[in-house]
């Protein structure tokens, strides 16, 4: 393995002083529709409710709802309201933003496994959401105390809700 491998390494400064270096920033803008099933979910959030959808064939209740069951490949139209409570499946402490800037205040985020019919405790899959957590400490995350903790949504005041996943401010411990 003494042969030479192709590729010419550039140091950071060398890259910025390359002749003809082109800098470009795309200006694409998008508007996304939430579709059939997720629109029902977002309408529910606006009313302070967590809405799932039940498969007529296997009985799983999906959160977030989808228009079809991925296992049975049948349409799903039976929307059901869930209590919104659940347990923390995993939680982490973020010190960085989307674009990797250090954040002033770390944020605790993770996955909530919601209380929903159609699953057993051992099921690989479950109804759940990705969201922020509040009312739990960094120490709870590190020690593992947070995992399995019972939580419920903390809603924004009704007049501030817009039909977005951020209508839930965060999930917080049930006892608080």
């Amino acid at each position: 393995m003494t042969k030479k491998y192709p590729g010419t390494y550039l140091k950071r400064d060398e890259m910025y002083s390359l002749p003809g270096l082109v800098r470009y920033k795309p200006t694409a803008k998008y508007s996304f529709s939430a579709g059939i099933a997720q629109t029902k979910f977002l309408e529910g959030l606006k009313k302070g409710k967590i809405i799932g959808v039940k498969c007529p064939s296997c009985g799983r209740v999906y959160v977030p709802p989808r228009a079809f069951c991925e296992y049975c490949h049948v349409p799903m139209n039976e929307y059901v309201e869930l209590p919104g409570t659940g347990e923390i499946h995993t939680a982490v402490i973020s010190y960085i933003s989307t674009f990797r800037q250090r954040m002033d205040k770390p944020e605790i985020v993770g996955v909530v496994k919601l209380d929903a019919p159609g699953y057993t405790k051992e099921s690989y899959e479950f109804a759940g959401l990705f969201h922020r957590f509040c009312g739990i400490t960094e120490e709870d995350v590190i020690s593992g105390k947070a995992i399995g903790m019972r939580v419920k949504p903390r809603w924004k005041p009704e007049n501030e809700r817009t039909g977005s996943v951020t209508d839930i401010e965060c999930f917080e411990p049930v006892e608080s």
Partner: peptide
């Protein structure tokens, strides 16, 4: 929710 890619890995690793 303003996620960073590392979040999802951290969540999986924590689990």
């Amino acid at each position: 929710l303003g996620p960073n890619l590392i979040w999802i890995f951290a969540m999986e690793m924590r689990r």
